[in-house]
Computed example of a mutant assay.
Amino acid sequence: MVNMLMIKLVMRYWEPVPRGPVLWEARAEPWATWVPLLCFVLHVISWLLIFSILLVFDYAELMGLKQVYYHVLGLGEPLALKSPRALRLFSHLRHPVCVELLTVLWVVPTLGTDRLLLALLLTLYLGLAHGLDQQDLRYLRAQLQRKLHLLSRPQDGEAE
């Protein structure tokens, strides 16, 4: 509860400092070319990982759409239909794209003090509540394999 309040306050009162001190900046060659390129590649990889996570998890549920849909139709809570392994995972896991968010926050060619403060606050927030164990990783691997198998199966019309 306190974590959510902290995030809401940061989001509500955040003010960028465009002319503030810069902690690092890639200005000199070859860093001015290679560091932004490396950051770009890592950001693309992060977005691809986010896409793969959306394959494992239910996208509509992550966005809260399924909860609204179930509520309107009077179907109860969507979590009630989840397996005990999924409920265990969800009980101590933040949004599954948190690690990629950290990559996007920290891997930048220029880091000013405002970006540093934001990255530190969100890292602290994610670090306090994020923790996977071997049981969670086995469950996530099984879910990804199941969904990839569904995607790779030929459709009825494609087999001919």
Rank of each mutant, 00 (worst) to 15 (best):
L122Q: 07
T103E: 04
V44E: 10
F57V: 03
F57T: 02
V10M: 12
L116S: 03
Y125S: 14
V72T: 07
E100H: 05
A86H: 10
R12A: 15
C39A: 15
V41D: 01
V10F: 13
L117I: 14
L62P: 09
L132Q: 04
L117S: 03
W24N: 02
A159N: 05
Y59D: 02
A60F: 08
P21A: 13
W24V: 02
L132T: 06
Y13S: 05
T123Q: 05
L48M: 11
P96G: 06
V68S: 03
L102T: 09
P18V: 01
K82N: 10
L55P: 04
C39Q: 07
Q143C: 15
L118P: 00
D133L: 02
L55W: 15
Y59P: 07
L65Y: 05
T123H: 03
L65A: 02
G112I: 09
V17F: 11
N3H: 12
Q67P: 00
P21F: 09
V10P: 00
L93M: 15
R153E: 12
A26I: 04
E160W: 14
L102K: 04
L132E: 07
W24K: 01
L121W: 07
E100W: 03
P96K: 02
H95F: 10
H43M: 09
H130P: 00
A60H: 09
R141H: 03
L148S: 12
E77K: 13
E29K: 08
V107D: 07
E25H: 08
C98S: 14
M4F: 11
L137G: 02
L9S: 08
L126D: 07
L151E: 09
F40A: 13
Y139E: 05
L122A: 05
Q67K: 11
H149G: 12
A129H: 10
A60W: 10
I45T: 04
G131M: 03
E100S: 12
L87P: 02
S152F: 13
M11L: 13
V22L: 04
P78S: 00
A32S: 15
I45P: 00
P109D: 08
R94F: 08
E77A: 10
Q145M: 11
A26P: 07
L105S: 08
S46K: 05
K147S: 08
V56W: 05
V35C: 03
L55V: 12
A26S: 10
G76Y: 05
A86T: 02
W106G: 06
K66E: 13
L118T: 05
A32D: 14
I7M: 15
P18L: 04
L37C: 03
L81Q: 13
I45G: 02
A86Y: 10
R153T: 11
Q135F: 01
L117V: 15
T103S: 12
Q67C: 02
H92F: 01
P78H: 01
L89E: 04
L87W: 03
L122D: 06
Y70V: 01
N3V: 06
Y125G: 06
A28T: 09
E15S: 14
R146V: 05
K147R: 15
L111I: 07
